[in-house]
Design a protein around this nucleic acid. Structure first.
Lengths: 258, 258
DNA sequence: AACTGTGAAGATCTTCACAGCA
DNA sequence: TGCTGTGAAGATCTTCACAGTT
């Protein structure tokens, strides 16, 4: 979605596949955990298991970043953490604004992992005058009227939209006009943005619908395949593949923000 | 991720591509909006624009469901809404439990769109004894001790995990053991599940990291490509493609649920 | 004339399998 | 010997372009 947009001929050299980029955060998390346990090196097999992907895929992914491993040994954990962080642009600080401080917006503001890795909540913005000044997660909520000024003053380039669907496009337009070039959209709307602006969407409704689809199919198979014959595998296996399919929503925004 | 899992030889006939399934909710939402405006028919071109995808893709997607359109005319909105709903399994009611009623869990419980389309919050579960009995979104929170009973009594097959990362796998195991076969995971953990159980993950941290990657690249291009020559397109264009890349997280769960 | 449905080409992504280095 | 890095095969997904239908 919106992300993989190839503005320009899609650079050949710096060309890290979008699917790979989407997995780098996973690897980074697994590596961070290893780092905290002071594990010095990991093999592609071990790391792949921790990240829930297959080892060939992981090696191929890393090959796009360069040759950071050592044959016969594996990868140096600290070194990889640094390289991936750098590649993802996490060695710098990204000020983020959250627009729409309702249930979800407040939950996001309280999200601990935010600050943990390169991101900092620079401001909370809401259209409700009654919210203005009220602190959420220790940060005073500001009114939408000042959106442009806030974006500019803080040099914000990443915005999170957690408003109701109806307000999303308008908020998006203002964010973009003010200089934001990356948007994480929690409202169940398809946002229109100029070329060069990336949009990613997160939607509870869509996810549930996709699960329902598979759930329904399972129910059907039971009857058709006749359960009983071929007990089917039940041994625990790593599930998380690489979510190459997630999709946006379908109805109302995840929680009705202010 | 976990979803596209092809248990069994991957049925040939009923084989709707995973990428298509992920887009059906998008189409459904666009169609529902048209239906509310009493629009009788739409062309693939119009619907595609509303859903933020390209029309050829939409037509191909629909072709997997059957031939529901009329050449020279388009698609009957009501009919398509029904067909897609049926395909997604939304013509039946899916009881859902949310485990971990912290900031995020509460926000999810309050999510209006939940009930709107086939889903019903059957129960809220939290490990904090102090939460027990307290109503959230009008539903009394129940203690984790009763998890199995709740799942069985309500015939729940879809569970939402909004606990801290540390508790996720354990909760997942219990949900699965009690009969849940589809899980929506908001905790930043790779869940291990038996074959046949679908897991989808939603992670704020991952999404932001992916945006940061592209954001960083944009900054680099500016300098390299030398802005000035070739002003580049700036005309608003539909952004939302089809989120075929979303990924799971990387650090802490979206908001620290109880 | 307008628009769907789809074979075929193209682009991406995944997985295999093994050469090559430590 | 152990494990990475990667060409090549395979699987999916996307887009084209046009035949077919109303």
């Amino acid at each position: 979605m919106a992300t993989g947009r190839t503005h320009r001929p899609a650079t050949r050299s710096r060309g890290i596949p979008e699917a790979t980029v989407a997995r780098l955060p996973l690897y980074l998390r697994a590596l961070t955990a290893l780092s905290e346990r002071s594990v010095p090196t990991v093999s592609s097999e071990e790391l792949a298991a921790a990240a829930g992907v297959n080892s060939a895929k992981l090696r191929k992914d890393f090959s796009y970043l360069g040759s950071y491993g050592t044959r016969g040994v594996g990868y140096d954990v600290e070194y990889l953490v640094y390289q991936i962080s750098r590649e993802l642009g996490l060695t710098q600080d990204w000020p983020v604004v959250i627009v729409g401080i309702g249930n979800l917006g407040a939950a996001l503001a309280n999200y601990g992992g935010f600050a943990s890795r390169g991101f900092r909540v620079a401001a909370l913005i809401d259209a409700d005058p009654a919210m203005a000044g009220k602190p959420v997660a220790g940060i005073p909520v500001q009114h939408t009227d000042d959106l442009e000024k806030i974006i500019e003053d803080n040099g914000v380039s990443i915005g999170v939209i957690a408003t109701p669907a109806g307000a999303a496009q308008q908020v998006c337009d203002r964010l973009v006009a003010a200089g934001v070039t990356s948007i994480l959209n929690f409202a169940p709307t398809v946002l229109s943005v100029p070329d060069g602006v990336d949009v990613r969407k997160v939607d509870l409704s869509i996810e549930l619908q996709i699960l329902a689809f598979h759930e329904q199919r399972k129910a059907g198979e039971e009857t058709a395949a006749g359960d009983g014959a071929l007990p089917a595998a039940t041994a625990p296996a790593v599930a998380a593949d690489d979510s190459t399919d997630q999709g946006p929503d379908g109805d109302v925004p995840a929680v009705m923000p202010a």
